[in-house]
Each structure stands twice: as structure tokens, then as C-alpha cells.
Design a protein around this nucleic acid. Sequence first.
DNA 1: TTTGAAAATGAAAACCGTTTTCAAATTCGA
DNA 2: TCGAATTTGAAAACGGTTTTCATTTTCAAA
Lengths: 137, 137
Amino acid sequence: MHYNKNMTYNTRQKNSITELISEQSQEFAVKDIYNELIRRGEDLGLTTIYRVVDELTEAGKLRKNVSADGAVRYQYLADCNHLGHCYLKCQHCGRLKHADCHLVRQLTDHVRDEHGFQADEKQIIINGTCERCINEN
Amino acid sequence: MHYNKNMTYNTRQKNSITELISEQSQEFAVKDIYNELIRRGEDLGLTTIYRVVDELTEAGKLRKNVSADGAVRYQYLADCNHLGHCYLKCQHCGRLKHADCHLVRQLTDHVRDEHGFQADEKQIIINGTCERCINEN
DNA sequence: TTTGAAAATGAAAACCGTTTTCAAATTCGA
DNA sequence: TCGAATTTGAAAACGGTTTTCATTTTCAAA
């Protein structure tokens, strides 16, 4: 939270971390990034990864997710600020699928008009089980 | 997580805790319950509250919510396992409003048929700003 | 009412992920 | 090349939660 605010200098560590993160298609923990980089022979500290992850989160590149058991995981995000968008979050594998759907728009409009609730278009989350996990079980 | 599994004996502490919790209409932290009970002159330990909250959560009476900054809060829940239900969660005041709406049902059906995603009917959360908070600001 | 096994309690210690500290190393414009 | 600003990371601190374990309480059966 009170790490360095700037990302003015390029460093070996930052580059390694941001590159690995940008390849992640699933949720990951800070420790996962650390473990993988160490496994690859990189030499860096856990603290640095916390700092970069925090910066990326503030920059909107990562979504921070804290599950009910307290585990903190991050999801690399492409931009998607438009309306009619929601997240389908699989509670089994942690994948966060983006879905565009006219019904989402209808729902948020309705909820605003009838329930007086202004939905945050970037924060509509439908938890459940994804196709892959349904088929695997 | 590994507290006592049973709630076989009635105790003064348990009764105080569950009674106070059942009066909560907004999200609360474990420490809030502790502070209020101490303020009222009750004599009990923080550990006991953690245990009771955990039991109530496993029993489905409480929803555990962990915000992005890691703060853990609970919401007292009445039963609502039926279809066409969603939560409207206000990110300002923490209130969790229950909403029933035919469009929710349409959306979950659609998401299942077209996106292959089986939604958990008890876990559809629309984050945003509630009527009260909109008017106050 | 007494008894005692099971359950519950809570203070203190342990735990663990995260943050802060701070001295040393690195970056990069001048 | 120089040096001020930035970055790094090991270690310590932090803080919420869980575990430990000795003591207390509950309540059914005698």
C-alpha cells in the first residue's frame, strides 16, 4: 500500500515480473510469481514482487481477488470498461471469463430503475462453475 | 477453520454473540462484535467470537466477505436459496440488499446455455452504489 | 442433587502473509 | 563520469487469525 509510487526506472526485476504476469491467463498468487521466477534462475526478492503487483493493480492491469479463506490472488486484465459486460468466475479453477451480453445491460438498467441501485459495470460477478470444470467432474 | 465443530452446549457467550449478530443489518467485523459486547459489560474473549462466527458461517447464517484491502466482514443472512435472486452490494456503506428479479433468472439461463457457465444462484453479486448513498452524495 | 465426560472458554503463543525499514545497489539524465 | 533519485531485498515489524492447553462450564444420567 505504501510502496514506491513511481515506476520511473527500468530494472531487470521489474521486467521479469511484468513479463511473467502478462502471460498469466489464470488467477495467480504473489508467491506463484516468486516461485516461478526463482525456478527460472532469476535472482530477486519477494518484496519486489509485492511492490510491482501493487503498482500494476493500481494501474488497473491486475484485479485483486481475495477468496473467502483469505487467499489473495490476482488476475491479469485486458481493458473492458464497456457496458453489457460481466465476469463469470469459476470457483473451482479460479478462471475469470469475460462475457458480453445484452442481458447484463438489461439487468443493470432494471436494477437502477426499479431497485435504485447504480451498478458498477466493471464489478458484476457471476460465481459458478465453468464449462471445463463441469465436464471434468 | 479448526474450531469446535459442534454447538451442543448453550453458553452465555454463545447466546450473547448470536443475539447481537442476528440484529446486524450491515456488514460487521469480528472485532465490532467484540467491542460492542465488551462495551455492554459482557465478559468474553475474542477467540470465542471467532469460533461462533465460524460456526454460523458454516451453517450458512453468515456470508463472509473479504474486501480488496483484506478486511474481513460478515453479513447476517436470511434464507434465500431460490432462483431469480441476486445481491446488490453497496461499496460505500457495505449494505447487502437482496433483490428478486426475473431478469436474473434470464441471465443465468442465458449464461448457462450460451456461455456454458453454471451460475451459483446464491453468489450473484452486483457491486455498486445504493440509493441511500447516491442521495447522500 | 451429585457426578463426570464432553464441550466450551480464553489468555497467550504461534502462525503467516504482507508491509516497513533502511543500508546498499542501480538507473539514467546531465 | 557523476550523483541525485529510485529501486532493491534481507530482516524486522505488523496484525489479523488460529492453535494450544489448562481451566471452567454444561447437562444427561445416576
